[in-house]
Simulated assay, not measured.
Amino acid sequence: MKFSTEALRHDWTKEEVLSIYHLPLMELVYKAATVHREWHAPDEVQIATLLSVKTGGCPEDCSYCGQAARYHADIKVQALLPVNTVLSHAQKAKERGSTRFCMAAAWREVRDNRDFDRIIEMVKGVNEMGLEVCCTLGMLTESQAVRLQEAGLYAYNHNLDTSEEYYDKIITTRQFDNRINTINNVRKAGITVCSGGIIGLGETVEDRVGMLRTLANMETHPESVPVNALARVKGTPLENNAKVDAWDMVRIIATARIMMPASMVRLSAGRIEMTEAEQAWCFMAGANSIFTSDAEKLLVTPNPGVADDMSMLHNLGLKPKAV
């Protein structure tokens, strides 16, 4: 496996990425699988657990999100969980094979208050368990990022969601540059970056390519790139969008793998609507992480459970990645 960063590129053109994305499917997957095997153990999939530590009531207007207060989704608002409750979830996740534990709070931005102090305690506790600890809390200042890093935060998730050109069609309560600024603050603090996006929002192929190009042309590639298929939440503006075609997921995962060979590419939201065979194609194309949950939820949307995921990995000859 390669560990040198000499082969990593940060100067992709739109035309180059489009030419990769539009390769004949079998050739595209073959190229991505070859890159994957050069950089990663091809039989390993990292198991991650994502817990909503504060649910609903968000002031943002992200068109896909049932946690936005302005939409009438059937989401139960939940205040920030107690530290001990979160640590109990983390311990159970570790016992079931997760090596990464992610905590999500439905905030627009982090505020320097007692809730953030409680998040800091959660991060310390999960870090002490030997898990990769990740948070997604909204926009973050540089000083807040430093506090999280000092507490032991391994990664911060802040997805681009879509291309800069299509961004204001999906979200109007913040700017695309706000996303980039938070990612830069995370990077300056010495925390690894988790950033990807969602397909199925009504975007074009050029938007998908634009999102990947923004990520891959960063000075340092995100160490983690989640690829999500839109979870169509009733009550949100995008509830009637078409189901994402599995081959579109395969194509974007393969393109991401070729462009960012060292990154973990995470097959994230939308797996509940994919067959085992369709997920297998995604693994072949370079995905090497999934989110699983005893509660069979990914934040507030349905997700396969631990038993089903372990059965799938067994059937495919894959194994959970060790720490």
Rank of each mutant, 00 (worst) to 15 (best):
A254G: 02
M259L: 15
A246K: 11
K243F: 12
T236K: 10
V233K: 08
A242S: 15
M249Y: 06
R257K: 15
R232E: 02
M259E: 05
N240P: 00
I252N: 05
L238Q: 09
A256W: 11
R257Y: 11
K234N: 04
T236A: 05
M249V: 09
A256M: 06
A254R: 02
K243H: 11
L230C: 06
A229S: 14
I258E: 02
M260Y: 05
N228Q: 08
P237V: 09
T236I: 13
G235C: 05
V250A: 12
A256H: 09
I258N: 00
M259W: 08
T255Y: 07
A254L: 09
V233Q: 05
P261Y: 11
R232T: 04
V250L: 02
T255G: 03
V233A: 03
V227M: 15
M259D: 07
M249R: 07
A231V: 06
V250I: 14
A256Y: 09
D248K: 10
A246S: 15
N240A: 07
M259Y: 09
D248A: 08
N241S: 14
A254D: 08
I258V: 14
D248V: 00
N228G: 06
A246T: 00
V227E: 00
V244W: 01
D245I: 01
G235V: 14
P261S: 05
V244Y: 06
W247E: 09
N241Y: 02
R251F: 06
W247V: 13
A262F: 09
M249N: 07
A262G: 10
G235H: 02
L230S: 02
R232Q: 04
L238T: 11
N240S: 14
A246H: 12
